[in-house]
Design a protein around this nucleic acid. Structure first.
Length: 874
RNA sequence: GGGGGCAUGGCGAAACCGGUAGACGCAGCGGACUUAAAAUCCGCAGGCCGCAAGGCUGUGGGGGUUCAAGUCCCCCUGCCCCCACCA
């Protein structure tokens, strides 16, 4: 016997990757009759470094794609790059490199890192949003939105960095209202900005969530909350002049509780409300001006601080409550938001906690008009009663249920002309303008004569100029490049100016999944035929951090493009899997708060600060550089191979849960793969190979129904594994238990393989290797070839078909019957598998267990669950 | 404040529709092999009592439904996530 070879992933993985690539094994079958399946990972930003979060994401999608191929589907499994964005521009500013070249280098390096994972990606369909053959179509789609009236310009209040002279995204302003880069206090500025009218689809985006039953409930809820539909009413309060007569002005409030109208003791406007200057009386002018000034200088943080005291001033005017004619004062207050509802609310202190606090502070009347059902007293103290109840002190509505009264009051308002029902959304239109260089240019031209003129389609793409200077100061480099900005108007030919804003990168990522269906199309972003063939995406996989924005924007794009006739479906992603984070072991000195690198901790069982000797806290947290708890995928692959990394990630935790990286567990996975290697090695040495005679198993089964006990056991293990793994890989993906089923099968094979006839051994080996293929593709392929008599005689294991289980192999003659007495398990009884309930009851009653525990009593009741248990209740 | 989720051995986790809780693995312990170690193989392993046979107990806490509850219902506690002066 020769020296057994060892499993050395380094020696096989890259070889197989190259061979698969040269055979175009992962190319998307076009024009095939097989049913299409689209498996998609959220594409990465090309930072240049692959981290474990990426690895987890792509490995999960890869397993899904590989399983679907084995099941006979035509699979589209693409990859691309979300390649516009600030890091490239910062690299340009800080190091003087060209953002495009910097991005392309990162893409090249990340692509190589990805390929080492053995992902079955069709790289021929790769897209990068920063390449003009892609962003040309982003621009084309923008023009579609413009044409549909879904893209428009308006003045908006934005975060303005006065030092860097640029607009910042909300995420780029820290908690103290300072720019993340310049450190300057950010100002609010009004600038003309581009928006997409996502609110036009608010109802559809909300209502269609109900049909997305392949999405996590959590994500659907988050989107629903974000859209925030609330049903209520707009009510008009007439402004009164000094003599108490209507002045002609009207204040309109939005409320979800029209039933509380009789309890309104004041009306309050946002300080920015446009009517404030006109309605302020002379004696309040100074106080109002001072208050507005104070509010405008408050930072975002101050206005949203916890326990914010509510402040306001009366502006002098009075308004009339439309339902009872009462005169009540008009205030302004900082707790009313200018950009929600009408920017005005009615103050009902008895039935709104904020109004209650405000009224108490300024000694405004608190009048209860709804009481809890069954209560007759004015029953609350210290807060507002905000639930539904029964109406009191509300004129003709007294005694009515408040829900009913709400509708009646609105109806009366509609009759009398002071109220109407209204649906309000929290969702705002999407601000897509960025005063940045490294983004997709907005393809419009501003002409003094013609106004906003779209760039003609035959002039797309509007390319980003490469000869720009990056100073990081003075706003967008595009705006400073006169040669690029100055252009003839496509309409009238007179001198005009290009739009210098670029698009939010979320624009580019809102349609990339459509482009993969038809990536080489040079006349359209995608053909209707291709997009309708492959989409919607069958399974989308990515991080929960995109639960709202990216997924909502993509849904909006899909619906808007459907209405333009560009595609024929309403939702882009049929199923969504949000994978958990990858956490690294983290050491922190609790006294100093400093993080310590694991390498600097001498003894992990007694972790000490290497400098001070203090005891360290140990916990798992999301991997990050600053916490020294990251694990480099490249290092892991170098050491254990991609297959071990894949198996570990899949086995360690269910996909949607956080995963704790643990080197010892990685070792454990490696050992498992080594065992599989030896199992096959040993079989091959015994001459058990797959190339010949495999078809003889059915003959053996037919001719020799009396298999040995070991053969039956092994076959049962094989077919149990097929059933269990198949089950784990559909519906909810349970890769962790699927891997554990492979382990069980390998354990059973370790026990029985040498004791069974070759035909039975072959079936087990073949099944194990095919089931393993989606998880550990390189090792499975290597084992597949080792098992073949002629190394080139068998096709790739990845071109096999998913095994189906043989019900006869699962049949048992006897089963262990659980005997319970009064619900407690008291023992097992081996009984014929096909025994009926009466037989089971008799066997149970005759058993020693019954004799011992019933102590001669006759059971009052006997519950028989055939195939499972008998419960004897004395 | 509103909404969503989670809680099972030393650890990661499993458990179909209510039917033997802890599969599978990590760490641990014992044994075989070895001069020795590593690797490998075999075995043990929720807790408590017991030499053992065996018994009691056990899925964050309390109650309930049921022949039977990790699983269903009510209340409580702790942790995580999202939104948040949204009228």
């Amino acid at each position: 016997m020769s020296e057994p070879s060892r499993y050395r992933p380094q020696a096989i993985e890259e070889i197989w990757q190259e061979r698969w690539e040269s055979q175009a094994l992962d190319h998307t079958p076009e024009g095939s009759t097989e049913e299409p399946y689209y498996a998609l990972s959220m594409f990465p930003y090309p930072s240049g470094n692959l981290h474990m979060g990426h690895v987890r994401n792509y490995v999960i999608t890869d397993v899904i794609a590989r399983v679907q191929r084995l099941r006979g589907r035509a699979v589209l499994h693409p990859m691309g790059w979300d390649a516009f964005g600030l890091p490239a521009e910062n690299a340009a500013i800080e190091r003087g490199v060209d953002p495009g070249a910097w991005t392309d280098r990162n893409i090249a390096s990340m692509r190589e890192q990805l390929k080492r994972l053995g992902l079955s990606i069709d790289w021929s369909r790769e897209v990068a949003t920063c390449h003009s053959d892609y962003y040309r179509w982003t621009q084309w789609l923008f023009l579609q939105f413009l044409d549909a009236g879904l893209a428009y310009q308006k003045d908006a209040t934005v975060n303005w960095d006065p030092i860097d002279q640029t607009v910042l995204a909300n995420e780029q302003v820290d908690g103290e209202g300072r720019s993340w880069r310049s450190g300057a206090l950010v100002e609010k500025r009004k600038l003309r900005q581009w928006f997409l009218k996502i609110t036009a689809y608010a109802d559809a985006l909300l209502d269609d969530l109900a049909g997305l039953d392949g999405w996590p409930e959590r994500v659907r809820t988050m989107q629903a909350n974000w859209i925030g539909r609330s049903t209520g009413a707009e009510l008009q309060f007439a402004v009164l002049d000094a003599g108490g007569e209507p002045s002609g002005d009207t204040v309109t409030v939005f409320t979800t509780r029209p039933d509380t109208l009789y309890g309104a003791s004041y009306v309050v406007l946002a300080p920015e409300h446009p009517l404030v200057p006109a309605l302020t009386t002379a004696d309040q002018a100074v106080a109002v001006a001072a208050f507005c000034d104070l509010v405008s200088r408050q930072s975002e943080q101050e206005r949203t601080a916890e326990d914010r005291p509510k402040r306001g001033v009366p502006i002098g005017a009075m308004v009339r409550n439309p339902v009872n004619g009462e005169s009540i004062p008009l205030w302004i207050a900082d707790y009313v938001l200018a950009d929600y509802g009408t920017g005005a609310v009615m103050g009902v202190p008895a039935h709104d906690q904020r109004d209650f606090l405000f009224a108490r502070q300024y000694e405004l009347p608190v009048r209860q008009v709804i009481v809890p059902e069954g209560a007759d007293a004015h029953a609350f103290e210290g807060g507002a009663w905000t639930e539904a109840g029964v109406m009191i002190d509300s004129g003709p509505f007294d005694g009515m249920a408040s829900r009913e009264a709400a509708a009646k009051i609105v109806a009366r308002g509609e009759t009398e002309g002071w109220g109407r029902g209204r649906v309000q959304f929290r969702l705002r239109d999407w601000l897509i303008s960025r005063q940045r260089y490294w983004g997709c240019p907005i393809p419009v031209i501003h002409c003094d004569s013609c106004g906003v003129v779209p760039v003609p389609q035959d002039q797309l793409p509007v390319e980003l100029p490469r000869d720009v200077a990056f100073s990081g100061k003075g706003g967008s480099p595009l705006a400073q490049l006169e040669s690029w900005v100055e252009v003839a108007c496509p309409c009238c030919g007179k001198p005009a100016r290009r739009e210098t804003d670029t698009m939010d990168t979320f624009m580019c990522s809102s349609w990339y999944f459509l482009r993969y269906s038809d990536p080489a199309n040079t006349s359209l972003p995608f053909s209707r035929e291709a997009v309708d063939r492959w989409l919607p995406v069958d399974q989308y996989v990515g991080g929960i951090e995109h639960a709202i924005l990216h997924l909502l924007y993509s849904r909006f794009f899909t619906k808007a493009l459907r209405d333009r006739g560009l595609l024929g479906f309403s939702e882009p992603f049929t199923r969504l899997l949000t994978q958990g984070m990858v956490q690294g072991i983290t050491y922190r000195n609790p006294a100093s708060g400093k993080y310590i690198a694991p390498d600097d901790v001498a003894d992990p069982t007694d972790p000490r600060d290497p400098l001070s000797g203090e005891l360290l806290e140990v916990f798992y947290e999301k991997m990050s550089k600053s916490k020294y708890n990251g694990v480099d995928p490249g290092v892991v692959i170098e050491r254990y191979g991609a297959d071990t990394a894949r198996m570990f990630i899949l086995f360690k935790a269910p996909p949607e849960k956080d995963l704790e990286w643990d080197d010892a567990d990685v070792e454990g996975q490696f050992r498992f793969l080594q065992r599989l290697w030896r199992l096959v090695e040993t079989s091959v040495e015994r001459g058990v190979v797959l190339a010949d005679g495999e078809q003889r198993l059915p003959a053996l089964l037919a001719a020799d129904a009396e298999l040995t006990e070991a053969e039956r056991e092994l076959r049962r293990a094989v077919h149990t594994a097929i059933e269990a793994v198949s089950e784990d890989l559909q519906g909810d993906y349970q890769f962790n238990t699927a891997v554990s089923e492979l382990m069980k099968l390998s354990n059973a094979m370790g026990t029985h393989l040498e004791a069974v006839r070759p035909e039975v051994a072959r079936e087990a080996l073949r099944t194990l290797v095919v089931l393993l293929a989606p998880f550990a593709p390189h090792l499975a392929e290597e084992l597949w070839q080792k098992l073949g008599a002629n190394p080139d005689g068998l096709q790739s294991v990845h071109r096999q078909s998913w095994p189906s289980s043989d019900a006869t192999a699962l049949v048992r003659d006897t089963i262990p019957l659980v005997i319970q007495v009064k619900g407690k398990v008291r023992g097992n009884l081996e009984v014929p598998a096909d025994a009926d309930a009466a037989t089971l009851e008799r066997l149970a009653l005759e058993s020693e267990i019954a004799l011992k525990w019933l102590e001669g009593q006759k059971p009052r009741r006997v519950i028989v669950v055939p195939g499972k248990l008998v419960n004897l209740v004395p």
